[in-house]
């Protein structure tokens, strides 16, 4: 992640590749099922690991910003990186060592879809890819 870089691929090419792949699966259906599963697993994880700082309804506290209605969560990479690696400078601990991929996928899926949020699922593979 730090050194080797390739000049060619741009976000635009990625989008094109992605759109081309849209016909091949039915992601919406697959996601619905696993989303409710992951959210059920994520709810208690949120209460145990996040609520003390972010509030039991994601409303934020003096320690940490609100997650309910937080448009930053639209970015899946943002929330996964934030939970994995934290930002200790600003007071959020990393969870990479204390939660499994599935647990982080569950808690981030929960946060992205709880309360007023509707940002969609996070698959465990996305967490694994960022370790």
């Amino acid at each position: 992640m730090r050194t080797v870089v390739r000049a060619k691929t741009t976000a635009a090419t990625l989008v094109a590749a992605l759109l081309a792949s849209l016909g091949t699966i039915n992601p919406a259906l697959a996601q619905d099922e696993s989303l409710s599963e992951l959210m059920a697993e994520g709810r208690p994880l949120y209460q145990d690991n996040c609520a003390a700082c972010h509030g039991d309804r994601g409303q934020g506290t003096g320690t940490a910003p609100a997650l309910d209605g937080n448009v930053n969560l639209e970015s899946r990479p943002l929330i996964i990186n934030q939970v994995l690696w934290g930002s200790s400078e600003h007071g959020m601990p990393p969870f990479a060592d204390v939660m499994t991929d599935r647990e982080i996928a569950a808690v981030t899926s929960f946060v992205r879809n709880a309360w007023e949020n509707e940002f969609g699922i996070v698959f465990p593979r996305s967490v694994e890819l960022r370790r």
Binding site: A11, A12, L14, V15, A17, L18, L19, S21, L22, T24, I25, P27, A28, Q31, E74, S75, R76, P77, G120, I121, F123, R125, S126, L129
Partner: peptide, 15 residues
């Protein structure tokens, strides 16, 4: 990930 999620919103997130 683009293939994994495969939705249009995902495309936007990548962009």
């Amino acid at each position: 990930e683009a293939a994994l999620y495969g939705t249009e919103e995902e495309a936007e997130q990548v962009a």
